[in-house]
Measured scan of single mutants.
Amino acid sequence: TFVEFNGKKVEYPTPEAAEKAAKKLAKKLNLKVTKKNGNYKLE
């Protein structure tokens, strides 16, 4: 499962880990999380 932000793509071993990381990053970077095709994107 990938988390995409600032043009970077980071892969996580589980969807749970990706979701957790996405939410944490979104909060830190003041972005919102969108889920697309099972992957997460911060914008």
Rank of each mutant, 00 (worst) to 15 (best):
Thr1Leu: 06
Thr1Cys: 10
Thr1Tyr: 15
Phe2His: 06
Phe2Val: 09
Phe2Met: 08
Phe2Gln: 05
Phe2Asn: 04
Val3Arg: 00
Val3Lys: 00
Val3Leu: 07
Val3Gly: 00
Val3Ile: 08
Glu4Phe: 10
Glu4Asp: 05
Glu4Ser: 07
Glu4Lys: 03
Glu4Leu: 08
Phe5Asp: 00
Phe5His: 06
Phe5Trp: 13
Phe5Ser: 02
Asn6Val: 05
Asn6Cys: 13
Asn6Thr: 03
Asn6Ser: 07
Asn6Tyr: 13
Asn6Arg: 11
Asn6Trp: 13
Gly7His: 06
Gly7Ile: 01
Gly7Phe: 05
Gly7Gln: 05
Gly7Met: 05
Gly7Pro: 00
Gly7Cys: 08
Gly7Arg: 05
Gly7Thr: 04
Lys8Ala: 09
Lys8Tyr: 14
Lys9His: 08
Lys9Val: 13
Lys9Phe: 14
Lys9Thr: 11
Val10Gly: 03
Val10Glu: 07
Val10Ser: 06
Val10Ala: 07
Glu11Pro: 11
Glu11Ile: 14
Glu11Lys: 14
Glu11Cys: 12
Glu11Asn: 11
Tyr12Ile: 01
Tyr12Asp: 00
Tyr12Gly: 00
Tyr12Asn: 00
Tyr12Val: 00
Tyr12Phe: 13
Pro13Phe: 07
Pro13Ala: 12
Thr14His: 05
Thr14Asp: 07
Pro15Thr: 09
Pro15Cys: 05
Pro15His: 10
Pro15Trp: 09
Pro15Met: 11
Glu16Asn: 08
Ala17Arg: 07
Ala17Tyr: 06
Ala17Asn: 04
Ala17Val: 07
Ala17Met: 12
Ala17Lys: 09
Ala18Trp: 01
Ala18Asp: 00
Ala18His: 00
Ala18Glu: 00
Ala18Lys: 00
Ala18Tyr: 00
Ala18Gly: 04
Glu19Val: 06
Glu19Lys: 11
Lys20Met: 11
Lys20Ala: 13
Lys20Leu: 13
Ala21Leu: 03
Ala21Ser: 06
Ala21Thr: 04
Ala21Arg: 03
Ala21Gln: 05
Ala21Asn: 04
Ala22Asn: 00
Ala22Leu: 03
Ala22Cys: 01
Ala22Tyr: 02
Ala22Ile: 07
Ala22Ser: 04
Lys23Thr: 13
Lys23Ser: 10
Lys23Asp: 08
Lys23His: 14
Lys23Glu: 11
Lys23Ile: 14
Lys23Gln: 13
Lys24Trp: 15
Lys24Arg: 14
Lys24Ile: 14
Lys24His: 13
Lys24Val: 12
Lys24Phe: 15
Lys24Gly: 10
Lys24Leu: 14
Leu25Glu: 03
Leu25Trp: 09
Leu25Cys: 09
Leu25Val: 06
Leu25His: 02
Leu25Phe: 07
Leu25Gly: 01
Leu25Thr: 04
Ala26Ile: 03
Ala26Trp: 01
Ala26Leu: 02
Ala26Ser: 06
Lys27Asn: 11
Lys27Ser: 10
Lys27Ala: 13
Lys27Tyr: 10
Lys27Thr: 10
Lys27Trp: 09
Lys27Cys: 12
Lys27Pro: 02
Lys28Asn: 07
Lys28Val: 10
Lys28Cys: 12
Lys28Arg: 13
Leu29Ser: 03
Leu29Pro: 02
Leu29Val: 03
Leu29Lys: 05
Leu29Ile: 03
Asn30Pro: 02
Asn30Lys: 11
Asn30Val: 04
Asn30Ile: 04
Asn30Cys: 06
Leu31Ala: 06
Leu31Asp: 01
Leu31Arg: 03
Leu31Thr: 03
Leu31Gln: 04
Leu31Asn: 01
Leu31Val: 06
Lys32His: 09
Lys32Phe: 08
Lys32Ala: 08
Lys32Ile: 14
Lys32Met: 09
Val33Thr: 04
Val33Gly: 00
Val33Gln: 02
Val33His: 01
Thr34Leu: 10
Lys35Gly: 05
Lys35Phe: 15
Lys35Arg: 11
Lys35Ala: 08
Lys35Pro: 05
Lys35Gln: 12
Lys35Trp: 13
Lys36His: 15
Lys36Cys: 10
Lys36Thr: 14
Lys36Val: 15
Lys36Asp: 14
Asn37Ile: 03
Asn37Met: 07
Asn37Ala: 08
Asn37Thr: 04
Asn37Glu: 11
Gly38Lys: 05
Gly38Met: 04
Gly38Ser: 05
Asn39Cys: 12
Asn39Thr: 12
Tyr40Trp: 12
Tyr40His: 03
Tyr40Gln: 02
Tyr40Ser: 01
Tyr40Met: 04
Tyr40Arg: 02
Tyr40Ile: 10
Lys41Arg: 12
Lys41Pro: 02
Lys41Glu: 12
Lys41Met: 15
Leu42Ile: 10
Glu43Trp: 11
Glu43Val: 14
Glu43Pro: 01
Glu43Ser: 10
Glu43Leu: 09
